[in-house]
Design a protein around this nucleic acid. Structure first.
Length: 183
DNA sequence: CATGGGATTGACT
DNA sequence: GTCAATCCCATGC
């Protein structure tokens, strides 16, 4: 799961005409209390315990949809939250949806990027290799920094946040990051 | 059935 | 820096 979170940095996400390169992720696992799957198998967490390679989309703070990639085999509740992208294609569409033109304001946050890409709760459980949300492998390895996760109150000390080194499109600047050994 | 909290954002002081 | 918006669902009575 940590490998997936690291390796997703530099990968492309595309939904219809819009796409971006993943620059920030966070890993979540049912063994730690910050993960929704920590409580076990419920209607909400069904997707997390399902087969890997699918989208887990849920509503946060009653307002925002957040996009995760389910990983680990069926029966294990684990996923990687996609927190920020550098915009690639369809910037005009994303800017219209976000009501902002600055490229750095389009996808620099987990709620922002779902709004920009048009991802909603209906995409929960969809296959990320088949669409409508498509994730494709990065062309070459990229330098990755790890750090502690953002905005959580439990298990906040785990260094399970992964960022593209030097990216200007992160949701929050790296605080005490350290380099991660490449795959 | 009622309640409370949350992997966030944007507006405002 | 503070704070409200708003909804899904886990939990407890």
């Amino acid at each position: 799961m940590l490998d997936v979170a690291r390796d997703l940095i530099g990968c492309a996400v595309a939904v219809g005409p819009c796409s971006g390169v993943i620059v920030e992720t966070e890993a979540y696992h049912d063994s730690e209390p910050a993960c929704h799957a920590y409580v076990g198998l419920t209607p909400r967490t069904r997707t997390l315990f399902g087969p890997p390679g699918r989208a887990y989309v849920y509503r946060s703070y009653g307002i925002h949809a957040l996009l995760n990639a389910v990983c680990e085999p069926e029966g294990v509740g684990a996923a990687v939250l996609i927190r920020a992208l550098s915009p690639l294609a369809g910037r005009d569409v994303m800017a219209a949806r976000r009501g902002a033109s600055d490229p750095r304001a389009l996808c620099s946050g987990p709620g922002k990027l779902t709004q920009a890409l048009g991802v909603s709760l209906e995409h929960n459980e969809s296959d990320l290799t088949a669409g409508p949300i498509l994730i494709t492998a990065r062309p070459e390895p990229v330098p990755v920094i790890c750090d502690t996760r953002i905005g959580i109150t439990k298990a906040a000390e785990l260094p399970w946040r992964f960022c593209l080194e030097g990216s200007r499109y992160l949701s929050v600047p790296v605080r005490s990051g350290r380099p991660v050994t490449p795959s």
